[in-house]
Each structure stands twice: as structure tokens, then as C-alpha cells.
Amino acid sequence: MKLITHNILTCVDPRCKKEPPSLTLAATKVSVEDSKFDEAFIVRMIDRIDYPTLLTAYREVAPKDSPVLPPEVPKEPHTNKEFLKALYYAVCCIVIEEGEMICPRCARSYPIRGSIPNMILRPMDEEEIKHSSKRMKVDKEEADEEEGESKESDNDEKKMD
């Protein structure tokens, strides 16, 4: 699986569909594939890539001698050849052969075997259910707190009127 694929995948659990988080990548086997630089392709992809997600995954799995990606997309990225080449390398040359992707929201795990991510929902074991329930409860409590804070600020604004 290439990092461009990881960049677009989200949790398929129905509970995570409202605001699907980026999947955490835990690679156990990574390789680098030779690929001829395709400037037109990477220029078209820049605006479609979730750069913070890509950067996090790339930093975790890229070999030490890999090109360095900057912390943020540079100004004028479409004309910055060095950036385009590094971005192309990150999304098209790094291959996750084995590992898993984990949803930070529900803790569901998606295995990667033979470079293919398995996104099919399967029954969760007891430990996954327990962890998932705790994570979802924390998310609900945080959402309830935010909703309460926004209602308070709405009420304060009404009082000022």
C-alpha cells in the first residue's frame, strides 16, 4: 500500500462516519519502489492530499536516506521542484508491505498484508470492544462539553442583546 492510499482511507465503522479521523499507521515492513518522477501527476494531487496526515505517516515509515518533507506545504508548491520530487517520493515510492492501520476514534484495526489493506469490517474481539467503548465514551463526553460551552456563549450573547 502506498502512502497516497493511506492518505485517503478512513475508518469504515459506521460510528466513525460523521467525522472520520485519519488512520494511524503502524508498519512492520516497508520498502521503496522505483518510480519515474511524474510532475504533472503530483501537481494535480497537491490539493487533494491531507498533508499533515501524509507528513506524520511519512516520518514514521520513511527510510533514513529519504528526501525530507517540510513541516508545511511551501508557498508556490506547484513550482517548487525539490518539494514536488520529495512529495512524489513520499506518495508513490514508499510501500507499506505489512502492518496495520488503527482508527484513533474507535480503535478498530485494519491489517495490511502483501501491501493490501483489508478494510472489511470484521467482528471485534472483547479487548477491541472494551477499548472502543472507552474511546467513544470519551469522544461523546468531549462533544457534550463543547456543546454545553457553545450554548453558554449563545446565552451570553442573547443576554447582551
Rank of each mutant, 00 (worst) to 15 (best):
P117N: 05
K159T: 09
S109T: 15
C93Y: 07
R105D: 00
S31P: 06
V73N: 13
E152W: 15
P111E: 09
N7C: 07
P77D: 01
D139K: 14
A40Q: 11
D13I: 10
M119L: 02
R44Y: 05
M136G: 03
S132V: 00
K159E: 14
P74Y: 06
H6Y: 12
P52R: 07
L3A: 10
E127F: 13
L84A: 06
E98L: 10
H6E: 02
R48L: 14
T24M: 13
K75I: 00
G114Q: 13
P71F: 01
Y51R: 05
L87K: 08
E97C: 08
T10N: 15
D13F: 05
D139G: 09
P123R: 12
S133K: 09
F83K: 14
I96V: 04
K137E: 11
Y88F: 09
D47C: 10
E149G: 07
S22Q: 10
E60H: 12
E33G: 03
E39S: 05
R59V: 00
V43D: 04
S31W: 04
K137M: 09
E142F: 10
T10V: 10
S115R: 15
V68P: 10
R105M: 01
P123A: 08
K130F: 12
K158I: 06
N80V: 03
R113E: 03
C106M: 01
I116Q: 14
E157C: 09
P63C: 10
I8V: 14
D50F: 14
K81C: 06
P77M: 02
T28I: 03
A57H: 04
G99A: 03
M160Q: 12
E145Q: 14
V32M: 05
D13N: 14
V95N: 11
E152R: 15
I102H: 02
K134I: 08
E19R: 09
L9Q: 07
E97R: 14
I49G: 05
P63T: 12
E145K: 14
E98Q: 13
D34F: 15
Y88P: 07
H78F: 12
S22H: 06
E145C: 05
A26T: 06
I116E: 15
E39A: 05
R113P: 04
I112R: 07
D65Q: 01
P52H: 11
E157Q: 13
T79S: 14
D156W: 08
M136E: 03
R108C: 01
K134M: 07
C106S: 04
P21E: 07
T53A: 15
L3R: 11
L69P: 09
H131W: 11
S109I: 15
E152Q: 12
P21H: 04
S153R: 15
E147H: 08
E127P: 11
S115V: 06
I116A: 13
